[in-house]
Every structure is written in C-alpha cells, then in structure tokens.
Design a binder for these strands. Structure first.
Lengths: 245, 245
DNA sequence: CGAGCATTTGAGTCTCCTCAACCCGGGTGG
DNA sequence: CCACCCGGGTTGAGGAGACTCAAATGCTCG
C-alpha cells in the first residue's frame, strides 16, 4: 500500500521533470523509510541542519516563516509527488519550516544517499535542478501576488494556482479536497483572517466559488482566473526545455 | 579590460558556489560575447524563449513582473558576478523580465554551449543548482517581506539585504553606490512611491541611513537590522553544504 | 452535551493609497 | 549664459482598504 503510494508519487515527479526511466528506477531503489506526520506537525524545522530528504506521498503541506512579531507567512503549498526539501541537498541550514496541512505520509531518505545517487546520475541532478527552478518561479509569482494585488485578486490567484497544480482537467466546476482554513489563506496572501473571511464571502456571493470544510469548488474558472490575473505560464507544466540547439 | 571584468565576475561566482578550479577554467574558456545595456534597458523579456545565458559583469539589474493593471513588482536585484538567467537553461519560456538598473555590461553565451558544458561537468551542474537554491531562498524571504512586514521594516530589510550582498565588511557607516530610485524601492516592497518617500524620510530623520543620488549610507547597522527583522541566514553566504555524512 | 476550533459579524481605527501640485538639480538648446 | 525641461523627490489633503479588538455563531469530535 505504502509502496504503491511511493510508486505513484515518484512516477508523478518523474513525469513532471521528464526523468528517464532508468534514473527513475534507480531513485525507486533507494532505501526510503516511511514517516507519518499529523495535522500541523513539523516536517522540517527552521534553523536545523538537514540530514534527510523527503517526498510527500499523501496529504499536503506548506512552507512558512515567522517574523519578529510572531506573524506567519506561508510561502508555498505542496502536494503528493513533490520533494519537500530538495534544498537540503546543498544548503547547510533550513532557512524556513515546513508543516503538514493535513495528515501526511512521507518517504524519507538520508541526504547522503540521495546526493550520492545524484553524483552518479546527471539526469537526476538535472531533474532536481528543474524542480527547484520551477519552485523558484512559483516563489516569484507569490512575491507579485502578495506585493501588488488587492485582496480579491490575491485569493483568486492563490485558488487558481492550487487548482491547476491539483488537477489539469479543464472542466468547469472543479472540486478539490484541501484541509485549508481561512487562516492558512490569510497567511499565504499576507492578509488577516478577518479580512480574508470577508473577501471569500464576496467571491462566494458572486457564485464564483464554494469553500468550506476543506472543500473547494470553482464554479466559474474563467471569472476567477480573470479576477486573479492568473496565467499559468509560471508553473512550467510542460516540463524542462528540450531544445538541443 | 572587459576580459578582466569577466575574470573577476566568474571568480566571484565560483567562490560563492565553491566551484572547483578546473571547472572554473572550463567555464572561463567558453565563447562569451560582450553586451552593453543602457539604464532601464531590457536584459531579458518576459514571454520570450531564451536562447542564451548571461553573467553580469558591471552595473546592476532587477527582475520584475507586471500585473494586469500595469503595476510593477520587482522580485530581486542583481550585481556583478551573478548569472541573470540560469533558469533559461531548463525552462522553456521566460516567466518574467530582467531590466538594467544602471548601465550594464554582460557576458553572453549561447544556452546550448552552456548546457553542453554542464553535461560534461557535474561539479558545474551542482554549482548552478546551488545558485538557484540560494536564489529561491531569497525569493522566499521576499514573500515574507512584502507579505508580513510594515513599511519601515520592509525598506529596512531590503536595504540590509542589499548591503550584505554588496559587501561583507562589518564596519559601521557602510557606503554603497546604487542607482536606485525611490520608485524601485517602492516596487520591490509592494508599496507606492509616495509612501516609500515618507518612510525613507523617517529612517533618515532618525539618523539610520542616508539615501540620495544613488548613494546609500547605513549609519546604524544594528538598528536597521533590528527594524527590518533581518537575519542573513537565508542568503547562505557560507556556500553549499559540504558534509559527506 | 460541552470543548475547541473555525467562521462570522460589528464597530472603530490606522496604515497606506490616490491624486495633485510643487520643488529641485542637472542637462540641453537657443 | 540663461530658460526650459524633465525625472526624481517632496508635500498636502482626503479616502479607502485592510487591520484590531471583541464577541457571537456554528461545526465537529469526543
């Protein structure tokens, strides 16, 4: 069961990064151990030195930093088939924390085992580099989102990103399960929970979305996309550039 | 003259990423061509497909995205010895633009030449991956900065980062030359130019900084650091993790 | 059925924005 | 050599979006 979850997750990652089959096989052969983290539990702690690297198998998670006055900023969300801490392969200390959004299963491998494999397999290194480039592109878009959009657009944009990353089906009335509270949305968009609440109510009353009890429904994708000024180019869904040129 | 600028820039990058000498030599041997960009000129255009990769030799530059209503968000600043578009090696399209802050000199190399070299030299791939990991860490901190700090703290934090990246000398009264307008600072912190102006005046009147005509002086580093809630961990100045573990 | 968390509501406030005008120094051209 | 122009900086007044504080409501789970 867990083994099959691992396969699914690794396959998803390999497909996204266009990792060759033999490198995927090598990755799959690593001595992963299973780890379960409950809701709100820490997956990675800020300030510590990383010793392992983990892939999310089920559940969801988010990166965060806290500022001096105690306020929290969420920096990204993560879903099954994503590495949580590729940066730990090369960075000496964790500059931020990662927490479970809902209960999570992780496949953990010692950092040194992974770095050894990377040295042997250039295609794997390339796939990981691609992964962190895409992550960087998402961070850039988040800077824009929290910096230059109003409340409505911030939330609309965030929901669009989550929807695209969770599912590429283009049908209307997309439905997603996400144990996301309004406080999470507030911390991800740089707003307060109260104002987030009022803004979401606005979107609901216009019939654009439903959002309650961990269930997000997007009723009018085009409208939401337009309100959120959303363009999915930055997600680089089409994979790494393959031009030989 | 230009050749020596290139050497200085490559050396700086190699030192930061701890690139072995022989890989640096291989990098230096690439057929770079020189390019000059005037103030505010585009170095990389959003939406285009990258065909080359460039290192900044002199001057300074910034990444930016514009949102639907025309507002601009600056996402990062760049200085000599930094690659401007490592992401172009693997991403198919530019999801943002890069502009010259002041007049710039660049060393440009075709993307394919660089990617060929990367395939031959794992240590170079590793150094580039490290570079983009650090860039990602900076983006994360920027999300926090624009999302969860007030005007004073935003500007103080930005100036602290620029100071550390421009110079690691620990002396008080650090002086920096930067062709930075208040509008740039506004766009980098997600504020308006008017409010940026008033906030800077506040910092000036308290004797913390001088900032005029492209000259930034930090009179009280500790105070500025404290106001900006600045901790340089995220800049990962100590280079890639070297543990074999 | 109560505990605890998430959501909702209200009222008052403040930070930051908008718009508009003015200043200032440096470069240019008559 | 002075007048003008222009980009950047500064100032003022008014407004609005978002925040704070506080309390009430509603869900879900023991």
């Amino acid at each position: 069961m867990t083994q099959s979850l691992l396969d699914v997750a690794l396959n998803r990652w390999a497909q996204r990064t266009q990792l060759p089959a033999e490198d995927l096989a090598a990755l799959r052969a690593l001595p992963f151990t299973r780890r379960v983290v409950e809701r709100d539990g820490f997956i990675i702690r800020e300030g510590e030195r990383p010793t392992s690297c983990s892939m999310l198998l089920s559940g969801s998670a988010f990166r965060q930093k806290v500022v001096h006055n105690g306020a929290r900023q969420i920096i990204s969300f993560h879903f099954p088939g994503e590495f949580m801490d590729l940066q730990s392969c090369l960075l000496a200390a964790n500059d931020h924390g990662v927490q479970a959004l809902g209960a999570c299963e992780l496949a953990v491998v010692p950092k040194s085992v992974l770095t050894d494999l990377i040295e042997q397999r250039p295609a794997l290194a390339r796939a990981m580099w691609f992964d962190t480039l895409v992550e960087g592109a998402i961070f850039r878009e988040w800077v824009v989102n929290v910096g230059r959009r109003n409340a409505r657009a911030k939330i609309a944009h965030l929901l669009c990103e989550l929807a695209v990353r969770l599912d590429e089906s283009a049908s209307d009335d997309k439905i997603y399960r996400l144990p996301l509270t309004q406080e999470h949305i507030a911390d991800a968009t740089g707003m307060t929970a109260v104002h987030t609440n009022r803004t979401i109510q606005g979107l609901r009353q216009e019939g654009l979305i439903s959002l309650a009890q961990g269930r997000l429904v997007i009723h009018d994708w085009n409208a939401l996309r337009s309100i959120g000024d959303f363009n999915d180019l930055y997600l680089h869904r089409s994979g790494p550039s393959t031009e030989a040129a």
